[in-house]
Design a protein around this nucleic acid. Structure first.
Lengths: 108, 108
DNA sequence: CAAACATTCAACCCTTTGGTTGAATGTCGG
DNA sequence: CCGACATTCAACCAAAGGGTTGAATGTTTG
């Protein structure tokens, strides 16, 4: 699985996005992260592993506690991918009108 | 499933991103879209349905042919979501340094 | 009309995912 | 040392995902 796919996959789950949102406000321990969620600590632990696999969090183990911190860098990939299509929604243009506007090939 | 989730889900699959890339160069019929892929036409048809569900393509039926065209607008949601975290990778900052830089609360 | 074509529908299959519970591991505090 | 705590590991399960094949539907064309 390429990096972009891994990252998109990670952020496509609402709970994981919620976790990231939480972590963007500062690092936190696993139990703290899990607290507001209506699911088991284990489930959260799994989500964290997915996020970690995508490089979106970093883990610092300190004794029995794991401190989790947000890392935004992988989102660059998503940003770049989306940016590539930006022309298709910027302004009032959409669809392939843009195509014909920018890459006009032949006059019909 | 909220819109953002639906869109992220749709673009998280490489084949679907490849389809979008193809369509960004101009509209196309289903069979044409499927041609370069190493999978059945049916599989592609399913992918198209997912993309359609996310609003990323629009379908115009003309007799027995379906003309598919790209629609970028839903990517706005992704762009907005990512943009919200942009501070975390822009410049040399990352992690929660940013947090402390922008939201400093108390001096320790 | 009949045959070829474009596409979807339906059923099936295997793998992945997101969740659970229960046990294991390791660490801290009295 | 022992019990509470923080976290993961392992096994399990139901549902969803991505693919297949075969049939159905509707359209074009000779």
């Amino acid at each position: 699985m390429d990096n972009l796919t891994t990252v998109l996959d990670a952020i496509s789950h609402p709970s994981r996005r919620a976790i990231l949102e939480r972590l963007s406000k500062g690092p936190s321990r696993v139990t703290e992260i899990a607290e507001p969620f209506d699911m088991s600590l284990n489930a959260v632990s799994k989500h964290l592993k997915v996020l970690e696999g995508a490089g979106l969090i970093r883990r610092e183990v300190q004794g029995r506690e794991h401190f989790i911190e947000f890392r935004g860098e992988p989102l660059r990939l998503v940003s770049a991918w989306v940016h590539h299509y930006e022309q298709f929604w910027s302004g009032h243009l959409d669809r392939f009108e843009q195509h014909f506007k920018t890459k006009r090939k032949k006059k019909p």
